[in-house]
């Protein structure tokens, strides 16, 4: 048991732990740096707006996104009552885009969250253990790497069948290997650092080394990479729906909407482009946020 000599403290009384460590939390530091980057701030605001709309879609939509109207098919952008026009079945575009944001965000974020949990755990385990555990996990990961991600997702949905649930499973399987790899790489780097050895010399066991020294250094790079993967997942989900392997009609999903409007691209190109523009803005915002996050987390800058 550690005993300190009983001597009066040499440190002035006004220097308390709370005073010294005030405002030095790592994530607080990252947030204050992120706030100072205009691009990241704009991306964050756009994403928050999309999330807001997605969450409160039932209260915000001007029309029912599934009500068809043969009389109002393909109204142009700027029509009265339908600001962004109507689609090939006369459904209100604004309402469908709002509902589409729900599925698109879900398809973008959920597979990545699953990937972080499974891939992060396996990657950190592989990186920290080394040896045969590492070889086993990483060689299995390599098998998944042999397939291009799009092909892998198509193959899995093809096997499991179409539908939202199966698409999410396929995307989760597609995005877990890259997250395993990044987690393994970062953990291997951190594990051999002197501060981890110093912690071992101080008698820390694996659990506390993990908690205090590995995780806080590993989570940053994983989160940055995962954020950039969200945009790829959104595009991939839209692509699967476009091909008819993901969400099926009449559900509102941006990729599926793009597919429906594909036939009218010569009649009203602006209308046909809208779901694509939304996919572009969303994935671009995630990419810019990822970039800003990387800069904000680099303690050496």
């Amino acid at each position: 048991m550690l005993q300190y000599p009983e001597s009066p403290s040499t440190v002035p009384a006004d220097i308390t732990v709370q005073n010294v460590l005030k405002g030095t939390g790592y994530w607080r530091l990252v947030w204050s740096r992120l706030r100072r980057q205009p691009v990241s701030l704009v991306a964050t605001v756009i994403l928050l707006a999309i999330v807001f709309v997605a969450v409160f879609a039932p209260w915000l939509t001007p029309h029912n996104p599934y009500t068809t109207s043969s009389l109002n098919r393909l109204l142009p952008v700027g029509s009265e009552g339908h600001i962004l026009g109507t689609d090939e079945n006369g459904r209100d575009m604004v309402s469908r885009l709002m509902y589409g944001a729900r599925l698109t965000l879900l398809a973008g974020v959920l597979p990545i969250v699953v990937g972080i949990v499974i891939g992060g755990t396996l990657g950190v385990l592989a990186g920290y253990s080394g040896g045969w555990v590492n070889t086993l996990i990483m060689r299995i990961t390599d098998v998944f790497y042999a397939f291009p991600p799009v092909l892998l997702a198509i193959a899995i949905t093809g096997t499991l069948g179409t539908g939202m649930g199966n698409m999410l499973i396929a995307l989760s399987i597609t995005f877990t290997p890259p997250l395993i790899r990044i987690a393994e790489t970062v953990t291997t780097q951190v594990r051999t650092q002197d501060y981890v050895e110093a912690a071992r010399i101080s008698g820390a066991d694996t659990a506390s080394i993990m908690r205090h020294h590995i995780m806080n250094n590993v989570m940053g790079p994983i989160l940055v990479y995962a954020t950039s993967l969200i945009s790829i997942s959104i595009i991939l989900a839209a692509g699967l729906s476009f091909l008819g392997l993901g969400v099926s009609a009449p559900l509102a999903e941006w990729g599926l909407m793009l597919n429906g409007l594909r036939q009218v691209v010569w009649i009203d190109p602006l209308l046909a482009a809208i779901p694509g523009v939304m996919i572009f803005i969303t994935s671009m915002s995630f990419n810019l946020l990822s970039d800003g996050l990387r800069q904000a987390m680099d303690v050496r800058l």
């Binding site: 550690l2 300190y4 403290s9 460590l21 650092q193 501060y195 101080s202 008698g203 205090h212 303690v299």
Partner: peptide, 29 residues
């Protein structure tokens, strides 16, 4: 490389005492 880049230095110093059973406040002091 012998200091955790994501820890304030006072926390780095206080880490080992907590492993050996000192309270967090005592370690920080």
């Amino acid at each position: 490389s012998s200091l955790n880049p994501r820890m304030p230095i006072a926390s780095s110093i206080a880490f080992a005492p907590t492993i050996h059973g000192a309270s967090r406040t005592k370690s920080m002091q």
